[in-house]
Design a protein around this nucleic acid. Structure first.
Lengths: 209, 209
DNA sequence: CCCTTACGGAACCGACCAGTTCTGAAAGTC
DNA sequence: GACTTTCAGAACTGGTCGGTTCCGTAAGGG
């Protein structure tokens, strides 16, 4: 502990300005949201961050590396809600997602990210980790608790349930252009609760062969 | 009518080879599916179609025009099924969608199309028209018939229902990479039928405040 | 004060690619 | 056979952009 070189590998010369660190990432994200990942130009990032291009390349070896770093900087902490009501917990998570993807940054980046993910498996992994894993884990926890509580049927397809919750939102964001609002969030939750409700007492199997 | 120049504006010189027409569109689509819309190179299209670049530019003024034409050539006729069962009709349409988007061409093109749509409103309109409108209209018809039949509640949110049917498929295709198979199609249909079933007789409103 | 590294800015290079133009030949009409 | 338009192929042009390098300067440690 007396020797700080073990914790800090002894930087030499002028230290890097962390102001530049932040400005670069911020500029990259904003430009990505505005013009897409592919049309992101390093010259533009440098100009908007008020930074020389060399300053960027001292931190990131390539444009791809910058893009990955900028995406990774878009972390949002997600906690599992626990209101006692499965409906309220699901609604809270879904409304959080609606807020994120009706905002400008994530909504703007996502379409071009979809394309970029398709030819960069590493980026795809990273994006899924940053944007999906947290919320899906939280939703999964809430769903499992709902099953234990008897609000949901025990044999529900968890993956399907997660995709039904998230799918319509991304569908509207990426394809149809439909509204991403509370009505969507609440409607999907309501549908899921009804559709995956436990067998009441009357199976109503009049549709069988 | 005696003058055929009204119907045919009298072509002069060597007529265009329609073999080239087809080869160009086919090559463009295949390359778009393989490398994405943005990485489509005109030289590659010409090479694969065994055609000179001038032959392409004689037909399409720009790369964008070629892309739009190639996408438009991906038409698939969709008819409204009528088996007498709402479940079977929905399942038929969904399985059709699964077949299309688990195939290679449409699945390969879609991710880069999402990106391209985002900055070319005209292309977006065209893509929605070609890929979405038909199937959504068919689904809407089946859903409305289901309401009339009493299989679905009368006050269901049609747009939401359509997005719940289509959303999970595109979500898996574009984001999660999850399987696009019959299980998905059937699961979504089943969920929708249960979730939008008419109020039976016992509203079970124990969740109200 | 000297060393090293970082800074913003600008100039530069090299690759890539859409789009154009030129070839010599082919395929139609009159 | 004169004329026109097409063909496949190749060469060329011009703009864009990732990445590198060099500048004069600033900011830290010894």
């Amino acid at each position: 502990m007396a020797d700080e070189t073990t914790t800090t590998p002894r930087p030499l010369g002028r230290p890097r300005e962390e102001r530049a660190d932040r400005a670069i990432l911020r500029a990259a994200i904003e430009l990505m949201a505005a013009q897409g990942v592919r049309d992101l130009r390093m010259d533009d990032v440098a100009a908007r961050a008020r930074v020389g291009k060399a300053t960027i390349y001292r931190r990131y070896r390539s444009k791809d590396e910058l893009v990955t770093a900028a995406v990774s900087a878009l972390v949002s902490e997600i906690t599992v809600p626990d209101t006692g009501s499965t409906r309220a917990d699901l609604a809270a998570l879904m409304q959080g997602a609606v807020e994120v993807y009706s905002g400008s940054v994530e909504a703007g980046v996502m379409p071009s990210l979809v394309d970029a993910m398709n030819r960069d498996a590493e980026l795809a992994r990273s994006v899924r980790e940053k944007f999906l894993t947290g919320r899906r884990a939280a939703l999964r926890a809430v769903l499992e608790r709902g099953v234990e509580r008897g609000d949901l049927r025990a044999d529900l397809d968890l993956e399907l349930a997660l995709d039904v919750l998230g799918g319509p939102l991304f569908y509207r964001l990426l394809i149809t252009g439909g509204p991403i609002d509370r009505r969507l969030a609440d409607g999907v939750v309501e549908l899921l609760l009804r559709g995956f409700a436990p067998e009441s007492r009357n199976p109503t199997k009049e549709d069988a062969p």
